[in-house]
Design a protein around this nucleic acid. Structure first.
Lengths: 235, 235
DNA sequence: GAACGATACACTGTCGACAGAATGAAATTC
DNA sequence: GAATTTCATTCTGTCGACAGTGTATCGTTC
């Protein structure tokens, strides 16, 4: 970890990629709000390009789950119901718990340093823009998944990106913001082997407040506990 | 559940959707093989449309994971390494196990009948085309996920579709084909509560042979066992 | 004969334009 | 005055075309 590689693999970023990033940033920074319609011609005029790369970028974002397409009616920024938030989080809990177990097995000081660095920036952002916090939040989790494996990262990203895209605009009370920020610390503790909790418990605590979920996770408390028992019995 | 709704929401399938389906079918039926390049102009000529909807369809398939795009070089049908197969399956094991636990909790006779019906068709296809078998195989698993929840289904689909797209062309020895087909039965037994195994065990048995994985799953046996130990030490 | 370089071809990325569908406003009827 | 139909506008879906890049072939040199 003395320094980064000299030459990063050069992405020749086609217009499509640039545009996708620009629009994505606009959504994550709250400039475009959930439910809002995205006018292709408008975007094309604003960005001084034709509609072709705009459409391609929007489709890419659609498959990422932060945009939905109503054929012949337009593309809209995703608008999640509370119910969706719960369901996504219940799946997330299972997958990210596994990712955390894997990450813990290969946890290096470098990885820990990186997480701490992100967390420091997040803490310093407490009074600042929500969009920066959300971005750092996502970066933090992604840094955890990145270590274990390519596919679990891709899968988790596909699942969770819409969550973050949506949560940007949720007005949060300041006490919730504090929880969002400081509940990341136990995750690092878990990864460093300093926690006695299960991955599921640590994550559940982390996820509980920000989206004000009900007390129980549909999947976790009902089913996972049963298998936990069986697993113990088996061993 | 007396009958289905009278009017299904009418999808006006744009050209893009038709084309995506056509190309997808071509891949799953083995007409286009993994690693093969997809020429947009060629496809446009063959299908008598312009390149625009072709590009959009290909991009859609790209985000589904059955096509990869090398910018300015072309789109290629996904070509998975054995290593990828392992990694995907290790993630799949975690997620699909959870899906099966959820499905078991809400398992209805109707759902069981549907699974049996698919399985019957699969068994009758033993001597027939591999593509049909793969399609039924996928349909079977999807039917399991569909009951629990929207998001776990979407997530699993995003993860596994490339697997099936790839497995079509893997020449399988006949004994493996038999295993692929008949190892589905224990899954139904599990869902019906007639199994004493864990969801993970049932799935691992099911996934072990078809893609000729080594004895162990990278995530499950190597890593999960470590964490299992830690967990035991703790408790 | 093999490796290197130059040239020609093919294909992707991007553009501007048109047709048909969806939306909203105006006009008409009860 | 309210509801419904008609009309105009706007936008998406699709098309054909062009420019620049990547690829392959051919010729050249050692």
């Amino acid at each position: 970890m003395s320094r980064n590689p000299v030459f990063a693999p050069v992405h020749l970023p086609t217009l499509k990629h640039n545009i996708a990033e620009i629009i994505s940033d606009a959504i994550f920074s709250g400039k475009i709000k959930p439910g809002e319609r995205l006018n292709e011609s408008q975007l094309a005029r604003d960005l001084h390009v034709s509609r072709a790369p705009i459409r391609e970028a929007l489709q890419q974002l659609e498959e990422q789950g932060i945009i939905v397409n109503h054929p012949r009616r337009g593309m809209f920024v995703v608008n999640l119901e509370d119910e969706d938030l719960q369901k996504i989080n219940s799946v997330r809990l299972v997958l990210e718990a596994e990712a955390m177990r894997l990450a813990r097995a290969n946890f290096t000081p470098a990885a820990q340093a990186k997480l701490n660095q992100i967390l420091d920036r997040m803490e310093r952002s407490e009074g600042g823009q929500p969009s920066l916090r959300v971005k750092l939040d996502y970066e933090f989790h992604r840094a955890i998944w990145a270590s274990p494996a390519k596919y679990i990262e891709r899968t988790l990203a596909g699942l969770i990106v819409p969550l973050f895209a949506y949560s940007v605009i949720r007005a949060m009370k300041s006490d919730k913001v504090r929880h969002v920020i400081y509940s990341h610390r136990p995750l690092i503790d878990f990864l460093a082997g300093k926690s006695n909790e299960t991955a599921e418990k640590v994550l559940a605590d982390h996820l509980k407040i920000p989206w004000s979920l009900p007390e129980r996770f549909s999947s976790y408390s009902e089913e996972a506990k049963k298998t936990e028992k069986k697993r113990k019995a088996r061993s």
